[in-house]
Design a protein around this nucleic acid. Structure first.
Lengths: 121, 121, 121, 121
DNA sequence: GTGGTCTAGACCACC
DNA sequence: GTGGTCTAGACCACA
């Protein structure tokens, strides 16, 4: 039934950072907004932004230079892709197909419904 | 029960109950395990099991007869299907396709990977 | 010259927890003090204690059960030993021998000095 | 046990300077690289290099002549040795033996491991 | 200017 | 009772 909790803000920020990296907007070794800057951009407390960066750093996606700022890791794009990919294939995909089966749907039906709803928007 | 999991335990239980209903294991109007029984089955605190049933009752999936026990609702299967279906199509599916795109995968690739991993199990 | 910074409090707490585990005081799967309890024991803000536990959890040394508390991980002792051991052998030991050499000391001299100073205490 | 924060850059520089002195590469009263030169060598901000020299000067390891440059102190080698020695014996050595004991290792084992890893390099 | 840490206090969901 | 998160504000070391 997927009664998903709303995600913590710091994880939402982390997620967005990952998307920027995945989309190529931020490249490997490139400097990213400072903690304070992103806290303004995202309209959250600097501590919360800091926590997001802390988390991403522990994941190896970004790193910081003392007194300078945060940077996308050397292999940040690859890192991010791997993290998201493994999570997607190991968690989201199996659940997706399981739910599909439970609901008595098949792949092409879902795809059609999805495309139709996209057109309506 | 996955205590370290992200999802609340009572929601994990509710999820399983729904699956039993969807899979036909528990039919409309059929009696389901008591709070105490299911708390033993799932190895959780009875309060937690109680909360799961509370939640399902509030959603109209099950109901109880005082002093007797809990039962799948008159239209429990339909109810469950609708809940899951709407959630699936409105939240899971869009996220699924979005992630797929971000990772540079397409539908058939994902399906292949999934089926392959299933065979290996 | 080893101008070491004083360590962050939350890391000092994490360190102490590791020592309790290494010394066998806290065994695998055993419950450890709650965040609030240890914050009182250590005389720090609960947030700081929480951060220490968070860190240890991310290292796989401890885990928590929702609403219940924190526990030493399944393989917590082994985990802790490995972490400490690798850090010791890869960082502390090389530096130790390098410093020893720079100071023109040898192993047995150092050991003697250490033992003598211990006796004096 | 990733408890070791990365050391401040200016302290890392100071450390290297001390090693040059201890190893005899730079002798008492000998001129050492200018702040600007060393900032280039170490690829750091000149301010940072300056801070390292400041620190070493305050410790009596080096001194400067206005408009000319920095020099190893009259008794720079002895000074450095003493500083390092006291720190080594009073802090590093006790910690070393304590960690060794916690990990269930003894002196000769550690020495063997260290030498073996050195040969492999 | 940068990040890092700590405190205080609050609210929440959960067991 | 438990942990998790967020805010606000402060101070520090560092570049």
């Amino acid at each position: 039934m997927e009664f998903a909790d709303k995600q913590a803000i710091y994880l939402q920020i982390a997620d967005k950072v990952c998307e920027f990296i995945l989309s190529g907007e931020w490249s490997d070794n490139e400097r990213i907004p400072s903690v304070r800057e992103i806290s303004v951009m995202m309209e959250v407390n600097p501590n919360t932004a800091n926590r997001a960066y802390d988390y991403l750093q522990s994941m190896g996606v970004i790193f910081n230079k003392r007194g300078i700022g945060y940077f996308v890791a050397e292999n940040g794009l690859e890192m991010t892709k791997q993290l998201k990919r493994s999570r997607f294939l190991e968690e989201d995909v199996p659940r997706f197909f399981r739910d599909m089966q439970l609901l008595g749907l098949n792949c092409s039906e879902v795809e059609q419904i999805f495309k139709k709803s996209n057109n309506n928007q």
